[in-house]
Nucleic acid binder design. Structure first.
Length: 563
RNA sequence: CGGGGUGUAGCGCAGCCCGGUUAGCGCGCUUCGUUCGGGACGAAGAGGUCGGGAGUUCGAAUCUCCCCACCCCGACCA
């Protein structure tokens, strides 16, 4: 493709609205443009990358027996009411004003609709059906460019099996396919166990990429590979045992002391001897939660432990429930369920609130003073805590979710009545799985991982073009001729070339080439041309070398292999 | 939805607090000439409902009110 005839609007300056690196670079390199918050157009260069990613996905999905569909984005609302998800999605679901239609945020319903109409016998399964299509979700807060949009491209796949064992097989196939896909894309990713959330089901794994732009938080152990979403991550901590002697309970006047930091400062004590109180409301009843020092409550873990319907108490409720405000709440005299994090199990000589403003209590012994206390792992895992599976420690960092695979089971086949007959003529619900990849996120994550201060650094797999051909001084006929010849020759060899044939200053073109980030740059300049040579630059390493024009194609092919 | 911020030429910004010529600057764009291996130089140009509406005023980019859009933090999120 000739640059002079292409729509590649590069930007020298950083657009005002972009903050994360991938977003900035996608705008600057002319890959995308924003139309509205969370709604992006892919421009020709960007769409070439979308097609490359899509093709890799197709190849790997087809390799596990997947069959590609193209489902409607516009869905009758009633089909979403069958599964109760019109309500479950709530405001996230886009509704059409003049018809009872919705814009599909995912496609379990439509796929199950087709399955129940066609898949009637055990002989019809297993099936893996997929598509690459636009999804619509009314995100309350779109951000980070294409990473979180209201409209986005997703590869979604669905498996239909006759048994749970069959589901395990389909799930494993997807797990392997996903690893191949992300490997081929050149991404540095990891896989975490995750909570199934509103999708329902029995098992799920997330494919994640470490990134400051991430909206999830993951805990990862480099040495053994343990990885988990922080919502479910466990950790091994050094337990502090009981002191040999339990002191008596005593009250301390602590004016204006609210936080743990203030308390440790005021009393000159370690935060490890502080039992921080938090009140949650579970099914209308207050529950007192204890955390050691400044540990934070992991509400996902708490919800799992107590059951659903858990929320933090409002400030007004605190006074009514405990007789004190936040900062002065404690176990003594509290009526209701008490759950403590494991770190405080059976501890004594602890400090906590007195349920009286401006007072704390020392000498608390959980075994002696707090009846019916329950213990559970309720902490949000922090960097530096021990890995639950090995001797090393965990690193906790923000991450982007690229893909998610779920064992759905019969959630949708039950609610939508998708059944089949087995060999004995007995009726069973189809066992399903669903599997998603955010196509644009693959691109954004790649750029997050592979860029420098000059621009994007594509690999061969995702690059919009293999080679960026730069003719310096396009007013010289011999340079134009040489470029044209190389351009045609490379094209003939099936090498994709972006030919910068613009009449612009050398530095201008070099900077655009670095910004756009094709794996190889070929520079045709006057001096080297006289010796029948040109310069080839490897974008990733910055390495430059001279190549004779006679064996250029061969050299290019050789160099492209590992990029 | 809560908190904070921004909106002035295609892009990046100044001007606003303290109202007063024809609303500036850099980049980009057009034309001509020179230049040509790391975002060239000179000359001449084009391009604006100052986010929208209402108000205050002799006079509003500037002050007041309402609305809209976008960004950041939080809440939410398969």
């Amino acid at each position: 493709m000739r640059f002079s005839k292409s729509f590649i609007p590069t930007l020298k300056e950083i657009p005002n609205d972009a903050v994360v690196q991938s977003h900035i670079l996608m705008l600057r390199a002319g890959l995308v443009r924003m139309v509205s918050a969370g709604i992006y157009s892919f421009l020709p260069l960007g769409y070439r990358v979308v097609r490359k990613v899509s093709e890799i996905i197709r190849e790997e999905m087809n390799a596990i027996g997947g069959q590609e569909f193209h489902l409607p984005a516009l869905n009758p609302k009633e089909i979403w009411e069958e599964t109760n998800r019109a309500e479950a999605f709530g405001d996230t679901l886009f509704h059409i004003k003049n018809r009872d239609y919705v814009l599909a945020p995912t496609h379990e319903e439509i796929m199950t609709f087709h399955a129940r109409n066609v898949v009637k016998s055990y002989k019809d399964m297993p099936q893996i059906w997929y598509q690459i299509q636009t999804k619509f979700r009314n995100e309350p807060r779109p951000r980070s460019g294409v990473i979180r949009g209201r409209q986005f491209l997703m590869k979604d796949a669905y498996s239909f099996d006759i048994s749970w064992e069959g589901l395990d097989v389909s799930y494993e196939l997807h797990d392997k396919a996903y690893r191949k896909i992300f490997d081929r894309c050149g991404l540095n990713y990891f896989v975490v166990g995750a909570s199934s959330g509103a999708m329902g089901g029995t098992g799920s794994e997330e494919f994640m990429v470490k990134s400051p732009a991430g909206e999830d938080t993951a805990a990862y152990c480099e040495s053994c590979g343990y990885a988990a979403n922080v919502e479910v991550a466990a950790s091994r901590v050094n337990m502090i045992g009981r002191d040999s002697v339990s002191k008596e309970i005593y009250e301390i006047h602590t004016p204006n002391v609210k936080s743990i930091d203030e308390l440790t400062e005021f009393l000159k004590i370690e935060e490890t001897v502080c039992a921080k109180s938090r009140i949650y409301i579970h099914n209308g009843q207050p529950v007192l939660i204890f955390m050691q020092g400044n540990d934070e409550v992991n509400e996902s873990k708490l919800e799992k432990y107590l059951g659903s319907n858990v929320r933090p108490a409002h400030p007004e409720e605190l006074l009514e429930i405990t007789g004190a405000d936040a900062g002065s709440i404690g176990p003594i005299g509290f009526k209701g369920r008490i759950v403590s994090d494991l770190k405080l199990k059976d501890r004594n000589n602890l400090f906590s609130g007195a349920n009286k403003n401006d007072y704390h209590i020392g000498g608390i012994d959980f075994k002696r003073d707090v009846k019916n206390i329950e213990y559970a792992d309720l902490r949000i895992v922090q960097s530096g805590e021990g890995c639950p599976n090995c001797d090393n420690s965990l690193e906790v960092f923000p991450a982007i979710e690229l893909g998610h695979i779920f064992k759905l089971g019969t959630k949708y086949s039950d609610s939508m009545d998708a059944k089949f007959l087995d060999e004995k003529g007995e009726e069973h619900p189809i066992i399903m799985g669903s599997y998603g990849i955010g196509v644009e996120r693959v691109i954004a994550c790649f750029i997050e991982q592979r860029h420098d201060d000059k621009g994007i650094i594509w690999n061969k797999a995702l690059a919009p073009f293999d080679v960026h051909l730069i003719g310096l001084n396009m007013k010289k006929a011999e340079i134009v001729d040489a470029c044209e010849k190389i351009y045609n020759e490379l094209n003939k060899q099936g090498i994709e070339v972006l030919f910068d044939d613009r009449d612009a200053a050398a530095g201008f073109k070099f900077n655009d080439a670095d910004l756009l980030g094709m794996p190889l740059q070929i520079v045709i300049g006057e001096k080297k041309l006289k010796e029948n040579m040109c310069e080839v630059k490897v974008r990733r390493t910055g390495e430059r070398f001279d190549v004779g024009l006679n064996n250029l194609e061969q050299k290019v092919n050789e160099r492209l292999v590992n990029l």
